[in-house]
């Protein structure tokens, strides 16, 4: 793996245990949207750009475009560049989420990493003429999307050792 950080967050010591919490920005995806013109006006085009300095593979993600219109049906698209008829999104008002469809989970085991990510809701085009939206996700790298959800995790204190998820950890310095 490219990322050596499995999880990070905030800790608090209690009587006999440690309580863990995610950092406040755990779910915060930094993005930018560039509006422009492209092709014919009867379609609306989208391009989603994920960070490239990473082991990231676009094939592992499904993009969910949420048009706010009378059709209002979430479109699930398995590629980062796509077009939809503008009749489905006449006021160019949309949300975007994505799903990681390849988490590291063994058969019969649970999953501590998130699989669904809300990028934004209810974006309204600034330019009424724009029909091409390039959406760049800046911090959505492997460390971000594979991070374990630590909210409410409890680590037991047993003498000088810690006990977490059935494993023991020994102090080394």
């Amino acid at each position: 793996p490219m990322c050596d950080t499995i999880a990070s967050g905030i800790w608090n010591q209690r009587a006999g245990f440690i309580e863990l919490h995610n950092k406040p920005d755990f779910n915060k995806i930094n993005y930018s949207i560039v509006e422009s013109l492209r092709g014919t006006k009867d379609s609306v085009y989208f391009r989603i750009i994920l960070p490239k300095d990473d082991a990231l593979d676009y094939k592992n993600f499904v993009f969910n475009l949420i048009p706010y219109s009378k059709y209002d049906q979430v479109l699930k698209i398995n590629k980062p560049e796509f077009a939809i008829p503008n009749v489905r999104i006449p006021r160019i008002n949309f949300g975007l989420s994505l799903q990681n469809i390849e988490p590291n989970v063994d058969f019969g085991k649970g999953n501590f990493q998130r699989t669904n990510f809300m990028i934004f809701e209810n974006y309204q085009a600034k330019d009424n003429n724009a029909n091409f939206f390039t959406i760049t996700l800046n911090n959505f790298n492997q460390c971000f999307y594979e991070a374990m959800d630590m909210e409410g995790q409890i680590i037991g204190i047993e003498g000088k050792k810690l006990v977490w998820r059935g494993n023991r950890y020994e102090k080394i310095n």
């Binding site: 050596d4 950080t5 499995i6 010591q13 204190i157 494993n167 950890y169 310095n173």
Partner: peptide
């Protein structure tokens, strides 16, 4: 105190508790 580095018994993971109350779990 709890602050410091802890290694999983099979050696594959590190837990780090910093004095500023941040923690990290790292692949070793």
């Amino acid at each position: 105190g709890i602050e410091g580095k802890y290694q999983k018994e099979n050696g594959k993971e590190l837990l780090i508790f910093n004095a500023d109350k941040t923690f990290y779990c790292l692949r070793n």
